[in-house]
């Protein structure tokens, strides 16, 4: 067992931004997500109820956004790049941190940007482990930053 050594070619990826993605927040996608999570708040599922709410539309539950795959980021491609640069093949989700800065609702058009914020070497029960933090930032059609997410992944 040993601490994972972060190679120079991995270090070079820190701070690099992936091409931004643009996507529209769909009402049906919000409803399906809320159903999959078991969130019964009508604000996320009942179109009529939501139309009469203070928001006037179906709103996304916090956390609907922020998983880089569903929002168009090709996360697996990014991991392939990391693996080519020396990251171990085993991959687990280590955790997440959200700053919810403004509400996100059906019809919003968001621009998402993601980058490798940090890479550290550690020793875990899986053996030498690379800990990567990806930071994604989402901006809506009015120019407001609505969400900042930091995802941590473990490669071992």
């Amino acid at each position: 067992m040993a601490v994972f050594t972060v190679t120079d070619s991995l270090k070079q990826l820190i701070g690099q931004k992936e091409p931004p993605v643009v996507f529209k927040v769909e009402e049906g996608a919000i409803q399906r997500y809320a159903q999959a999570v078991g969130d019964k708040n009508p604000q996320h599922s009942d179109v009529e109820w939501a139309a009469n709410s203070k928001w006037g539309r179906v709103m996304a539950p916090p956390g609907f956004m922020g998983w880089p795959i569903s929002t168009g980021f090709n996360l697996f491609k990014l991991f392939e790049k990391l693996m080519k640069a020396g990251a171990p093949m085993g991959l687990l989700d280590g955790g997440v941190e959200y700053d919810f800065l403004a509400p996100i609702g059906a019809g919003d058009i968001l621009v998402g940007e993601i980058m490798v914020a940090s890479i550290e070497g550690r020793e875990t029960k899986m053996g030498p482990t690379m800990v990567t933090t990806l930071q994604s930032t989402y901006t809506n059609q009015r120019g407001a930053v609505v969400l900042v997410v930091r995802n941590t992944f473990l490669n071992f």
């Binding site: 999959a36 999570v37 078991g38 969130d39 708040n41 604000q43 709410s53 203070k54 539950p61 916090p62 956390g63 998983w67 687990l92 989700d93 955790g95 997440v96 941190e97 959200y98 700053d99 919810f100």
Partner: peptide, 27 residues
């Protein structure tokens, strides 16, 4: 992990009610 995270979001949003606002969450 993300489903368990979504449950924790659900825990907080159910508790805070329609007039509450979730500002931060980490797990």
């Amino acid at each position: 992990g993300l489903l368990k995270r979504a449950w924790l979001v659900n825990l907080m949003t159910d508790w805070m009610g329609q007039e509450g606002t979730l500002k931060r969450l980490s797990c």
